[in-house]
Simulated scan of single mutants.
Amino acid sequence: MNDLHILLLLIAAFQFKHLVADFFLQNAKMIMGREKYWHMGRALHAGVHAVFSVLVLAVFGTPLGALAALVIVEFVVHFHIDWAKARYSVDRNLQPTEACYWYAVGTDQALHQLTYLVMVWIWVGL
Rank of each mutant, 00 (worst) to 15 (best):
I122Q: 11
N27H: 13
L7K: 06
N93K: 14
V124P: 05
V120C: 05
K17F: 03
P63M: 04
H78G: 07
S53C: 13
M40R: 12
F60E: 12
L64R: 09
L19K: 04
I81T: 09
D22A: 13
Q109C: 03
G106L: 13
V51D: 12
H5G: 10
L70M: 15
S89G: 15
W38N: 05
H5R: 11
G106M: 09
T62L: 15
R42A: 13
R42G: 02
I81W: 10
Y101L: 00
L44S: 06
L67D: 03
M32Y: 06
L4D: 11
L126I: 15
G47N: 02
H49N: 02
G65F: 09
V105W: 02
V90D: 01
Y116C: 09
L57R: 04
H18R: 00
V73G: 10
C100G: 07
A28Y: 10
V51R: 04
Y37T: 00
A21D: 06
A69M: 11
A68L: 15
L8P: 12
G33N: 12
K17T: 04
A110D: 05
K29L: 03
A21C: 14
H45D: 02
V59C: 04
Q95C: 01
L117M: 11
V118W: 02
A104M: 08
D91F: 05
L44E: 11
V54H: 08
V77Q: 02
C100R: 07
I81Y: 10
R42F: 06
F16V: 15
G61Q: 13
L10P: 08
I6A: 06
I122D: 09
V20M: 04
A66G: 13
A58E: 12
Y88V: 00
K85F: 08
H18S: 01
K85S: 08
A43E: 00
V48N: 02
F75Q: 09
W83Q: 08
V54D: 00
L94D: 01
D108K: 14
R87W: 11
